[in-house]
Design a protein around this nucleic acid. Structure first.
Lengths: 346, 346
DNA sequence: TTGTAGGCGTTATCAA
DNA sequence: TTGATAACGCCTACAA
């Protein structure tokens, strides 16, 4: 009755080793509770048969999967990659496995993936940004799945978050920009709908303008998708308007790289004729020319911290403590003083 | 006895709708087999209770998970991101979910993750490149998990692959390089151990040298990790050797971007003093300056095709048919003729 | 068309 | 220290 050519089960191993399934299970999960002689015999059988426990069965029985899920907006650029890698590294070290999905910035897809991951028995979930249907958080609560929000820090909501203040971070950058002498500031932002990170970045710049006596409504703003080309197009759009800005602040480095490309295409030199800034400080920021002045986000630190906190929540040793990660400005060549006689377009 | 505040099960829904669990299950999995009136009542209960099937249980009972696993070497750069996104898009459309892990280019980690994914009941697996312990393929066969290899095409092994010929692709590029007048060619490669893609790229260049009467052993070669900085360091290393190459061919665009950075640091102008080439044609290639001459890999096409074929294998409608995707050279400014009197170093 | 009941591979409780 | 055995939540013959 031995199934020679298909995956062995606990039962097969038990028979082979001449013990009960319970003993095999113990050898695997709490080896100290079985006497050495038996254990050696069992482990030998496990090795020889190439046994791997069936996870589905294990999850069902143990109601624990040692698996953490994460849903990020996109895998296509490096913005989330680095933080996520750090997150995964930390998880691995602590014996957890990471399952990743990408939602393509679509709330509908994210919702579906949350259900998929929960149904799969993840012990905890990492989500990017706060804003989503309240119903989703209720669903998660009902299923007793701890959630951690990253890439955004908000002390005044009930979800635990490990992130940074998008508003404050860009406010500081905008202050630098203004201090450099700019007053005609334009912005390229990713779509803000359903994206509190993007929203806060717009707000941050507006606030900085206000704080310096500049009318925030004078800021030209283009919202677009998150690809490089979109950044290029948005830049061309902005520079074709009646009054040219002296600086274009971008919602992230990818858009800024696009803006740079747009500038090159239009034959506009950066930063001599117009300055450009980014956000995130991913590798890209240093590679483009001129390199970007941007907001440095300590992605790895955030990833590690997020993993630690989420695991603590999963294991019940924490109720969920939010952490604010500090960002800082990195000055490179893409930001300079505005040109002396910054003429209007034409 | 109703559990009000925790996740509802099939049983709860059945009770609520006044039917048996079998009927609820049918409503979810083969709605046509239940009469409309009942179905509506059941679906209403499902909606209201926010029921999500428990995946572990479903997998156990049905021995199918509609889940595909993928293990990529890294999420940290865009090399795999685009193809993987396309892969996922296609899967989603066909009703499958993708689970991704990254192995950090470590065979040991990859092996562990393969077991994890298999234990989790994935219906099929996407792996990058052919080279790994034979034992792993046996394990996969034993568990009846179809595998598809991507990013590499090899007609002469038993695994199905959807990819391209790394050797031929770079051979063509090297031929272009030689045609431009170069003969002192150096290469920066990612570590070749356990990485057939990297190996084949080295071979491709060597073959091209041979084919043009150049001694392949004259090629200076540096192997390194896959980060930008490594590329920069490797470049500096190469350019500091007694005989400077007139062109540095890189195993991928990331390394090439690094080389470019190294050149900038050394004050060497590209392509006037030295040419640099890449591989992959990710966005980065177009962004750096000068933009890279490189091998264009149709990542999206590969991702889609891979998903289609793997699903066919999973569903038993294909035994596994390999596909070779064509690459082509993209000429940009980083490759030019060698300098007139290409002097040796110093 | 619908319901009953057995089984999927583990873990965990309770005895022995 | 070890062994029975009852869950875990779902699917699917088979029966009604």
């Amino acid at each position: 009755m031995g199934n020679t050519r298909s995956a062995p089960t606990l039962d097969d191993v038990a028979k082979e080793a001449g013990v009960s399934t319970a003993t095999v299970s113990r050898c695997l999960n709490s080896p100290e509770r079985v006497v050495e002689k038996t254990r050696i015999r069992v482990m030998k059988a496990v090795e020889e048969m190439g046994y791997t426990p069936n996870f589905a069965a294990r999850v069902m029985a143990a109601k624990q999967s040692f698996t953490i899920g994460a849903i990020i907006p996109t895998m296509e650029n490096a913005i989330f990659a680095r933080g996520l890698q750090a997150f995964q590294d930390e998880l691995r070290e602590r014996g957890y496995t990471l399952l990743v999905s990408s939602s393509a910035y679509k709330p509908g897809i994210e919702k579906e993936q949350i259900r998929t991951l929960v149904a799969r028995g993840v012990d905890g979930l990492l989500l990017i940004g706060h804003e989503r249907e309240e119903q989703i958080y209720e669903y998660l609560e009902r299923h007793r799945v701890p959630v951690l929000i990253a890439w955004s820090y908000s002390p005044d909501v009930r979800q635990t978050s490990v992130g940074f203040s998008n508003r404050d971070a860009i406010f500081e950058l905008a202050q630098n920009v203004i201090d450099a002498g700019h007053s005609r500031i334009a912005m390229i932002s990713g779509f803000t709908e359903g994206n509190d990170r993007a929203q806060k970045r717009v707000v941050g710049i507006r606030d900085a303008l206000c704080a310096n006596g500049i009318d925030p409504d004078s800021m030209e703003l283009v919202e677009t998708t998150y690809e490089i080309d979109s950044g290029a197009n948005a830049f061309v759009d902005l520079m074709s308007r009646p009054t040219r800005p002296t600086v274009v602040m971008c919602g992230n480095d990818v858009l800024a790289a696009g803006a740079l490309r747009g500038a090159r295409k239009m034959g506009i030199s950066v930063p001599e004729e117009v300055s450009i800034t980014g956000f995130d400080d991913i590798e890209l920021a240093e590679i483009v020319s001129p390199p970007l002045t941007t907001v440095h986000v300590p992605h790895r630190k955030m990833g590690h911290k997020a993993a630690q906190e989420l695991i603590a929540m999963v294991e019940g040793s924490s109720e969920g403590a939010s952490t604010c990660i500090n960002t800082h400005i990195v000055s490179r060549q893409s930001l300079a003083k505005p040109p002396k006689n910054a003429a209007t377009n034409k």
